[in-house]
Design a protein around this nucleic acid. Structure first.
Length: 269
DNA sequence: AGTGAGACCCGAACGC
DNA sequence: TGCGTTCGGGTCTCAC
């Protein structure tokens, strides 16, 4: 599901294409996707300029000139499409915005949402998130400090948004594989050397995935060659039984608090 | 504090 | 083909 690299890919594409544009029209097809009555939502959003598109963890922030922000979380199965009245998908869209001549379609928002918030409300909603793993202030020392405060299993911590923001089920496994460490390791058992490997794996995997365009299944616009470029690059995620790209051993799947865990039990220790 | 279960939601996958 | 059923999975909340 959409994690940091996918949302960052969307953020960049959106910033380039619709940043600075006036949202001439907003439509709400599913009221539960938003947080206020549709009339109020449309009244505030329509005619408002989209100043900037930001990201925090797995959230996307559409910052409006009025000081409001649209806070997007795609949760499970949510995705975006940017096209025209005719160039659109054969799928229902829960909300559409028209920044400029094209239309931004919000699809698959069942558990996901697009909430219109004031500056203060936005800050409050994001206040509980952990640090951004790719921020320059997120150093190895800070990561080691974070780890020292956790006693849980490694994977449980990696997907905990309050501890570290942006990593989900897929990248947690990919990061552990890159570091050669089992996701089910107890955090207190990690050596300083392993902590260093994990830190560098977080940087390497997230940056590689961002560069490749994440693992979304649906392109962002007609002819999009970036979005979803990471689909073929996952080393262990959803590859149960396939040979490990490092040692050839079969990749194992297990469950951990109703989450799938993929790992090579031979070269990850 | 960590873990687990239930709720949320509906498209996709599956079974007959 | 087609209808009914099951499942998945991030996050929040509430036990234990």
């Amino acid at each position: 599901m959409p994690e940091l690299p996918e949302m960052e890919t969307y953020r960049k594409l959106l910033e380039e294409r619709v940043g600075g544009m006036v949202i001439t029209e907003a439509r709400v097809e599913r009221e539960k996707t938003i947080n206020i009555p549709p009339e109020m939502f449309i009244q505030t959003v329509a005619g408002n300029r989209l100043k900037h598109v930001g990201r925090r963890g797995k959230h996307l922030l559409f910052e409006l000139e009025s000081g409001h922000a649209l806070l997007l979380h795609l949760m499970l199965g949510g995705f975006l499409y940017w096209g025209s009245q005719t160039d659109k998908l054969e799928r229902s869209a829960q909300v559409t915005l028209s920044p400029g001549p094209n239309i931004l379609y919000f699809h698959g928002l069942r558990l996901g949402y697009l909430h219109l918030l004031t500056r203060d409300q936005t800050a409050e909603r994001l206040a509980d998130l952990g640090p951004e793993p790719l921020s320059p202030v997120f150093t190895l020392a800070q990561f080691a400090q974070l780890l020292s405060k956790k006693k849980s299993l490694l994977k449980t911590a990696l997907v905990d948004q309050h501890w570290l923001a942006g990593i989900g089920n897929c990248y947690a496994d990919e990061i552990c594989f890159h570091a050669g460490i089992l996701p089910t390791r107890q955090i207190p058992s990690l050596t300083p050397e392993e902590t260093t490997r994990l830190y560098h794996a977080i940087q390497a995997i997230l940056r590689e995935a961002m560069q490749a365009g994440g693992y979304m299944e649906v392109p962002f616009y007609h002819g999009d060659r970036l979005t979803g470029g990471y689909n073929e690059r996952c080393r262990v995620y959803d590859r149960e039984g396939e040979p490990c790209p490092r040692c050839g051993h079969r990749i194992a799947k297990s469950m951990l608090s109703s989450r799938k865990v993929f790992a090579c039990t031979n070269c990850q220790t």
